[in-house]
């Protein structure tokens, strides 16, 4: 089977790749583009570890085909900090110790950023329901939710 050529934008960079017709965006990112910050926890869209932004929309990259990235913009965890300046969410996750093992963290950060882009003043309940598609087994979510609320408060006052 011949591979499909795809032209896309990833973290602001024009990117071209070849992929199989049945290859997921997650596999393309990890195996072909060496962007291994996006994690696979289930491959069935249940855990959110592979969360990325596709044209500004939060998606599980394991449920998107690589070929679907054609002509679109993908944002991954590798594009979240600007140079050596961390995004406020990244800083607050560290300050609040909102990660233990850290494998779900890229997905949570992408999902939380998507929330704050639509709602910079979420309630605790809104944060919890927005992040309900991201599984964390270590923290019990306490410090993650606090970090997101604290980031929102800081970004509002900035």
């Amino acid at each position: 089977m011949s591979q499909i050529p795809v032209t896309t934008t990833i973290n602001g960079d024009a990117t071209e790749f070849l992929c199989e017709a049945d290859e997921t965006l997650l596999d393309v990112l990890r195996d072909r583009l060496e962007l291994s910050g996006t994690k696979e926890g289930c491959g069935t869209g249940d855990c959110g570890a592979c969360s990325v932004m596709l044209d500004g929309r939060l998606v599980c990259s394991c449920l998107v085909l690589g070929a679907e990235a054609e002509g679109r913009e993908v944002e991954t965890i590798e594009g979240m900090a600007e140079g050596d300046t961390l995004h406020p969410l990244q800083k607050k996750f560290l300050e609040h110790a909102a990660l233990q093992c850290g494998v779900c963290t890229p997905g949570f950060l992408i999902a939380a950023k998507a929330l704050l882009e639509t709602n910079l003043d979420p309630t605790e309940t809104e944060v919890r329901y927005w992040l309900a598609g991201n599984l964390c087994r270590c923290t019990g979510y306490d410090k993650i939710v606090r970090a997101v609320l604290d980031t929102a408060a800081e970004m509002r006052s900035a």
Binding site: R30, L35, S36, G37, T38, K39, E40, T76, I77, E78, M80, A81, L86, Q90, F93, L94, E95, A97, L99, G102, V103, T105, P106, L109
Partner: peptide
């Protein structure tokens, strides 16, 4: 309660896990 020394790696996707 200082920031963990492996923290930046883990919030930027730089940390390498088993499948990475």
């Amino acid at each position: 309660r200082p920031v963990r020394p492996d923290g930046v790696d883990k919030v930027t996707g730089r940390a390498r896990f088993g499948a990475d």
